[in-house]
């Protein structure tokens, strides 16, 4: 493994340069062969375009931020409850969490949106979006918290209890601080998923960045023809600019941890990769 890793580390600095060179050459080739129409990129030189997309981006980030804060709160409570409650009481927390995680987020968003409409509640797709994203991500974060708590060796909490700390004190002062450190890569990975999932609000017609892009395409298509591909590409680049630093951060944190301290949950593509090795917290 070390030889592979060394070779990879050696190649990675050079790799960035080569990748940049290839991209530049590729774009130049497309341009020269007439595949790229300069006029279609014209809109992206206008300040008004970026102001318009920026408004959408603010909605995207606002929805993601609100959903993140809410689901961190709910997730922490759910995770601790799931770790603490024994037997049937535990199942009553676990089953709804498992069911939410087993449902595609877009389905949850549609159910919440139409459910709110029918119940005569909010018609605002951004509100429905925040609620739907919170339901789903609370379940995922709850599972991350549960796995984080389970990864702390039982001796830790037994020692704290025998020193006279209450259950809540043990959780707050001994278990959770350590668990939180182990959970961070998984939480940051889930944040990437959450940010990507906000693009689904486009389907509910909330004015986030993808919807703004579409509105803008309709505006320009009369002047320079369809700029759909160009707009989708630019929007993808905006998401990349936000998510790539997050994913690097997550991987750097995760690389420092020995395998048995790595926490992840099932069914989310952005979660850290944990290879089959003995899991901690197991007898």
């Amino acid at each position: 493994m070390t030889a592979f890793a060394a070779a990879r580390r050696h190649a990675s600095g050079r790799g960035t340069l080569i990748a940049a060179a290839i991209v530049v050459a590729f774009v130049a080739l497309l341009f020269l062969t007439g595949r790229i129409d300069g006029r279609k990129w014209q809109p992206f030189l206008e300040l008004s375009t970026w102001r318009f997309l920026g408004e959408g981006l603010l909605v995207t980030l606002g929805v993601a931020g609100a959903a993140l804060l809410l689901s961190m709160g709910f997730g922490l409570v759910l995770g601790v409850l799931r770790a603490a409650l024994p037997g049937r009481a535990g199942w009553s927390v676990a089953i709804p969490m498992e069911l939410a995680r087993a449902t595609p987020i877009l389905t949850i968003l549609l159910v919440v949106f139409f459910g709110l409409l029918r119940a005569g509640g909010s018609r605002d797709p951004a509100i429905a979006g925040i609620i739907g994203l919170t339901i789903y991500n609370s379940a995922v974060i709850g599972e991350i918290v549960r796995a984080g708590i389970a990864s702390i060796a039982r001796g830790e909490s037994e020692a704290a209890r025998s020193l006279g700390l209450s259950y809540i004190q043990t959780m707050r002062a001994v278990v959770l601080p350590q668990a939180l450190a182990r959970m961070t890569p998984a939480l940051v990975s889930q944040l990437i998923t959450l940010i990507k999932d906000t693009s689904l609000l486009f389907i509910l017609a909330a004015p986030e960045v993808l919807s703004q892009g579409r509105a803008f395409v309709n505006f320009y298509s009369q002047q320079v023809g369809s700029v759909l591909l160009e707009t989708y590409f630019v929007i993808a680049c905006i998401f990349f600019a936000i998510n790539y630093p997050l994913s690097r951060f997550s991987r750097r944190l995760e690389a420092r941890r020995p395998a048995h301290e790595r926490v992840h949950v099932l069914g989310e593509e952005d979660q850290p990769i944990v290879l089959a090795e003995p899991t901690a917290g197991r007898p």
Partner: peptide, 23 residues
Amino acid sequence: LEALTRGYVEFFRNTPLLVQLLF
């Protein structure tokens, strides 16, 4: 090829699937 495939992996992982499908 390392650089190319890494670029592919990073770009597709960090952009929304919906945007990719629409494109």
